[in-house]
Design a protein around this nucleic acid. Structure first.
Lengths: 232, 232, 232, 232
DNA sequence: CATGAATGAGGGTTCATTCAT
DNA sequence: CATGAATGAACCCTCATTCAT
């Protein structure tokens, strides 16, 4: 016979859940605002209004603007990695990995304009600390070099040849909705730059890619949904 | 006894020259400060102190922060173009042009860290209006596509494949002084991404490049000199 | 089988005791914090953390900052009076009473630095309502005047001639540990100021004084113990 | 034939004078507000409103609350010293000096209630840095000890026997307008406490004292005038 | 045209207090 | 009664901009 949870437990849990909801609301709102106004803008007022919480509540959750940005970037990086990485590591071929990773990330950006705008605004520096850029990308580059799939590029060079076009593409996607095929072009260019033969690059950049979706209550999806409803 | 200029002329000219000196001092200081603090930071106080002029003087020259940034970016873009373009158009081959342009720009960034820092900070958007990015780069891309030297990339895609790695390289140069050969690696990667055969890309990325120098009283050189003397 | 107390009684008593413990923890913590930060500083956060209770609990015990300060001051004044007064009223001579009272209070301040710091911080005003200052001091001053032991000073003048140096002494003790004999000097000065002949003042300020101790679970002792263990 | 001042000079001087006027307005207002609300209160809003200047102007003159208090205390201490010291050093006798100093200071406090309130609020600590307390008082105490006029009290003890009653008196004057003769009583008490014979103490505490006046545009007078006109 | 004192909107942050659990 | 998340008024401070000289 199940013993009902003790009131104290219930209260503690209810509190924790409430706190968690508030935190998520703040992060979602912040991502929207960063996307609109830029990372360095003064932001808190707008964030709390969008999140529908009081000023003090913000400071119960974050120490300030920098802390908030770090939380948003970490959350974004983590979610991105969680969606993309499983698909990437299905492949053994480093070129296939890079192609898949780049194309999935760009597909997500295209599907979620608010998210693309955020990434374009924060630039490479903000996600510098995420596992996505510090682990996944270097890992696949090293794999490619080791297996002779890529030219012998030093890590930093390889990183910049991948990340540079990707962030330029975020800009393009956020601001000027480039034509279909643009993402494939970026992916192909990156593979070529790394020394992958043209035929392979061509093929990998266009091979059928199972559609990705960010779960309906993921950060990406929620932010995007809010971007459509909330006034600029 | 002949008097070469009338006093009125003299005064007018002296005034103009003085004004010009003040303006240059402001632009140089601003570039330093943008490099240090970022584009969106609060800036004017530091700029006028570095320039050694009064608050009001600033507003005699610029309407505000945006105007200042535009002036600095335009000046930077123009000077860059003035140095790099003559060398670029010596070549008929689009690949040689792109290789030369990219390598010269990166060489200048390497020689002038404050300038590299500025470009890394402002990002592609700030120089978006300059002739360098709106004319020179598209021109050479179009040439390459027309002559069959490059793959048939649409303008925006080509642009992003060039500009993305270049700005990533500015970051790298400004912050972590990458090893010799890094710039060549970036240039080679860009050529490859555009579809240039590996042998050509390799050769063009390493061909001897007459050294570039920014004239001693150019913006680049002066800003850099001040960066070394003025305290952070 | 006899049950000594009914459960309700037991629960009620346990509740009362628990409440009392919480209240004491709050008062002790508050005294420490007042001593450190001053009376007008923002205080509640630190108090509840030191006391290890939740925010809401504080408001179950005190209406706010003022109420808290009043409670602490009253408690301090009462305990001081309880320790000092029995010793004071052993004497019939008003001069001996004042000398004893002043010296005992200063001895307690010296023995309990956190307590001295508290008194120095709150100043005369905070203890203005305590029985110590409203009853004991005026009572002995009046006695001295009535018996011709003191000059015919009006009440307020006498009060200020006593209380002024005593609070100055709290400062000295809290901040700069004056040399031995300092307290005697203060006591002698006060007696002289009231018109006691020099020989008597000298003798009373130095006569042997049975050591005072604040009981180990008195406010004074407990606050002091915590001041030594808790980090600044 | 006098050459007219050059325009630049005139402008510079006009600017300096304007700045000085603003600064004085701020200090006067601040003294009033400190007197009313206490030293640790949040004050800037009220100060700038009383002074009739903008928020930013405040920060052009002071770094913040502490800086403001320091400026006010320094100004108050300096002006007090400037008024009182010349009268004090007319006397060779240390007892006469102390009596004169104490009585003049208290007379000024009585004549300028706002000033008394300020001193009562800030307490001894705020004026701790002023020349009045760090130089004048110790100087005359040392003189008295050296000449045998006072008992051989150590410096800190003597200081506390003087300063303690004086600040208690500021309280009394500010809050409860004690009867005539109160100031003399304080002065007599202090002299007695220092060991001055009763007859001398009596005489010096009552000897005719030429009236002191704070010049009409002194801080004291101006603050006081404003206290009477401005609403609480 | 250069100067620099003054401005005030606009942002950041704190903290006493409330209240649902 | 204890809890702690949320609240929002009240602060503090900055900095782009104006304007009299």
């Amino acid at each position: 016979m199940p013993r009902p949870t003790r009131p104290a437990d219930h209260r503690a849990r209810a509190g924790r859940e409430r706190r968690e909801r508030t935190r998520r609301a703040l992060i979602e709102s912040a991502m929207l605002v960063f996307a609109r106004r830029g990372v360095e803008a003064s932001v808190i007022d707008e964030v709390i209004e969008l999140a529908g919480v009081a000023r003090g509540t913000f400071y119960n959750h974050f120490r300030g603007n920098d802390d908030l940005l770090a939380a948003v970037a970490a959350e974004a990086g983590d979610q991105l990695l969680a969606i993309v990485n499983p698909r990437v590591i299905e492949h053994e071929d480093a070129a296939a990995r890079v192609a898949t990773g780049v194309r999935l990330v760009l597909a997500l950006a295209r599907a979620h304009p608010a998210f693309a705008a955020f990434l374009a605004r924060v630039g490479p520096r903000a996600v510098a600390g995420s596992n996505l850029t510090t682990r996944a990308v270097p890992r696949d580059l090293a794999l490619g070099v080791r297996t002779g799939r890529f030219l012998r590029v030093p890590p930093r060079l390889g990183f910049d040849l991948v990340i540079g076009p990707v962030f330029a593409a975020f800009q393009a996607i956020a601001l000027s909705s480039p034509p279909a095929g643009y993402e494939a072009g970026i992916a192909r260019g990156i593979l070529l730059a790394l020394g992958v033969p043209r035929a392979d690059a061509e093929r990998l950049a266009r091979m059928r890619l199972p559609p990705v979706t960010a779960g309906a209550d993921s950060l990406l999806a929620r932010v995007d949904a809010r971007a459509r409803t909330s006034p600029r």
